[in-house]
């Protein structure tokens, strides 16, 4: 499987990371190299193997529906780069 600049550009958009032209070509090359190595996996026959997304044999972890005190609003907003009247603030949303 090979990866080209166009795919990297698309992926960078999905991940919301701006890439300069130089960075884009450098990363594309590196990712291609890494993916080439990863392609090692293609040699395995894993048609019938079950995927493991949780390594522990744990299930049904549930908590009671009992409210606890929330954190004070000042603490919630303590780190906010921009805030107004106890709201977090972001610049205009345009897609």
């Amino acid at each position: 499987m090979s990866i080209d600049k166009q795919i990297v550009e698309h992926v960078a958009h999905l991940a919301r990371i701006e890439l300069g032209e130089l960075e884009l070509s450098r990363l594309s090359k590196q990712l291609e190299h890494i993916l080439g190595f990863i392609d090692k996996l293609s040699s395995l026959d894993i048609e019938k193997t079950h995927p493991t997304s949780h390594i522990l044999p744990i299930n049904n972890v549930l908590r009671e529906d009992t409210p606890k005190v929330s954190i004070p609003v000042e603490k919630a907003l303590l780190n906010a780069p921009s805030k107004k009247n106890n709201f977090f603030v972001v610049p205009k949303i345009i897609e």
Binding site: P67, K68, S70, I71, V73, L77, N86, F88
Partner: peptide, 19 residues
């Protein structure tokens, strides 16, 4: 475990998890 009560002051029913 934050409360779901409706109509509270902004960002008062929050915790590290739901934030």
């Amino acid at each position: 475990a934050c409360s779901t009560e409706f109509g509270k002051e902004p960002n008062t029913q929050v915790c590290p998890v739901c934030l």
